[in-house]
Lab assay of single mutants.
Amino acid sequence: MSGNGNAAATAEENSPKMRVIRVGTRKSQLARIQTDSVVATLKASYPGLQFEIIAMSTTGDKILDTALSKIGEKSLFTKELEHALEKNEVDLVVHSLKDLPTVLPPGFTIGAICKRENPHDAVVFHPKFVGKTLETLPEKSVVGTSSLRRAAQLQRKFPHLEFRSIRGNLNTRLRKLDEQQEFSAIILATAGLQRMGWHNRVGQILHPEECMYAVGQGALGVEVRAKDQDILDLVGVLHDPETLLRCIAERAFLRHLEGGCSVPVAVHTAMKDGQLYLTGGVWSLDGSDSIQETMQATIHVPAQHEDGPEDDPQLVGITARNIPRGPQLAAQNLGISLANLLLSKGAKNILDVARQLNDAH
C-alpha cells in the first residue's frame, strides 16, 4: 500500500501541473516587456503551470559599433537563445518575429505568432524639431536608422535628408537623439515604442507609400524545439490566425527572394473581405531603383483552434497545428507568387547589386 502511495506522490510531482516552463529572452527592456506579455497570456491559459524567465545577451546586443547589415552573420539576435533551447536550458524563446530568419536551424520551429501590433515605422524627432515631419525637416538634416530597408525607401522619398546608421537598443538610440546634436530624427518601429509606453515620442507614423515595413514587423514569434510536442501544444494558444497568415505570406515572399538583413526588402499586408493583399518591394541601397507589386488571394481566416493538420510540417519556419492547413498554404503560395513576379521584373539584379555594395563598404 505504502509503495503505491509513493508512486502516486511521484506521479503528482512529475505531472504537468508541477512543471516549471523556462522562457528565454534577450536582456533589453523591450525584450523583457514583450516576454512578460507572452508569459502573462500563458499564465492565464495555464494557471497550474509556473513560468521562469531567463534573460541573456546576444551577438546583436554586444556589437554596437557596426551596422547590422555589415556584421555579416545571420541570427544576430537569436543564436545564443537557440543555443540555450538546444541544450534544454529553456523550453521556449520569445523573439520579435522580424529577427527570426525565414529558414531556422534544424530542430527549431516557430510554435506561435502572437497578435500583431502596429507594424509601421515611426519617426521620433529631436526636441528642437518636435512638430515637424520628415518632409518639413531642414535641408541636409541627419536621420538615424539601423535599417537598409528604411534608408533606401526614405532616401527616395525625401532626397533633402541624409540617413546615417544608429545602433543600440531603444533606450540607447533615444538617448543619442536627445543628448547629442548629430541626429534631427530617428526611425523606429511603432510597436516597440508603444510597448515601452513611449507613445508621446511618436512624431509621425510612416504610411506604406512612404515606407513599407519589415517582414514580420510588429509581431512576436515564440520559438521552440520542433519535436517538443508538449510545448508546441502549450504555445499553440498564442497563435493569432490573421497575423499568422499575413506573416506566412510575408516570410514566403522574403524567403523566395532570398532577402535578408543586408538587402532592402519591404512588405505591406492587409486582410479585407476574405482577401489577403500582399505588397512587396525591393530597392537599391540608395533607393534610386525599385520594383513594387501587389497581389491578392482569397483566404478564409479560420477561428482559433479549428482542428489543424496533425502532421505539422513547417511552413517558412512556422508550425501551427491548430490552424487549418489550406489557408496557410494559400498564404505561402501568395508570397511565392509575388516573389516570382518581382524576380521576373529584375528584382534579383537589384538585390545582387545591393548585396555587393553593402559587402564592399
Score class of each variant (00 low, 15 high):
104 L>K: 01
204 Q>S: 15
202 V>P: 15
22 R>A: 10
245 L>G: 05
200 N>E: 07
23 V>P: 00
180 Q>F: 03
84 A>N: 07
45 S>D: 11
263 V>W: 03
211 C>T: 04
326 G>P: 11
199 H>E: 10
94 V>A: 01
273 D>Y: 11
67 A>D: 15
46 Y>G: 06
167 R>H: 07
343 L>R: 14
76 L>G: 10
276 L>H: 01
246 R>L: 10
340 N>D: 12
338 L>A: 15
125 F>D: 02
279 T>M: 05
161 L>C: 12
296 Q>I: 06
239 H>N: 06
175 R>G: 10
96 S>Y: 03
350 I>M: 09
329 L>Q: 15
148 L>F: 13
252 A>S: 03
212 M>A: 02
37 S>G: 08
90 V>S: 07
54 I>D: 06
200 N>Y: 08
231 I>Q: 00
227 K>D: 14
172 T>K: 08
262 S>R: 15
293 E>Q: 15
81 L>Y: 04
89 E>W: 08
29 Q>V: 07
219 A>C: 02
207 H>F: 08
224 V>H: 00
231 I>D: 12
196 M>K: 05
219 A>Y: 06
242 E>Q: 10
99 D>N: 04
306 E>A: 15
345 K>F: 15
123 V>L: 11
40 A>C: 15
223 E>D: 05
357 L>V: 10
165 S>V: 09
275 Q>D: 05
248 I>N: 06
166 I>Y: 07
325 R>F: 14
47 P>C: 06
237 V>C: 04
192 G>A: 06
160 H>R: 12
254 L>V: 11
248 I>E: 02
23 V>E: 00
307 D>A: 10
90 V>R: 01
190 T>C: 14
22 R>N: 10
254 L>F: 02
59 T>I: 06
324 P>A: 07
248 I>G: 00
118 N>E: 14
124 V>D: 02
159 P>N: 13
326 G>V: 10
201 R>T: 06
235 V>L: 10
54 I>F: 13
304 Q>D: 02
199 H>I: 13
85 L>Y: 01
357 L>I: 14
130 V>C: 14
177 L>N: 07
73 E>M: 08
334 L>S: 08
65 D>S: 10
202 V>G: 09
32 R>N: 13
262 S>W: 00
299 I>R: 08
351 L>P: 09
70 K>G: 11
185 A>D: 06
43 K>G: 09
128 K>V: 06
290 S>E: 15
61 D>N: 01
247 C>I: 00
210 E>V: 12
352 D>C: 02
212 M>H: 14
248 I>R: 04
85 L>M: 10
189 A>Y: 01
105 P>L: 08
332 Q>T: 13
44 A>L: 10
189 A>I: 02
166 I>G: 04
190 T>E: 04
274 G>I: 01
160 H>M: 14
46 Y>W: 13
249 A>Q: 01
292 Q>N: 11
126 H>C: 13
339 A>M: 01
309 P>Q: 10
109 T>D: 00
198 W>E: 12
143 V>T: 05
335 G>T: 04
293 E>A: 11
328 Q>V: 05
259 G>V: 06
79 K>R: 11
305 H>A: 02
45 S>F: 06
77 F>K: 00
83 H>G: 10
76 L>F: 06
202 V>F: 01
25 T>G: 05
78 T>P: 02
144 G>A: 11
213 Y>C: 06
142 V>K: 10
350 I>H: 15
95 H>R: 02
313 P>I: 15
103 V>N: 09
227 K>N: 05
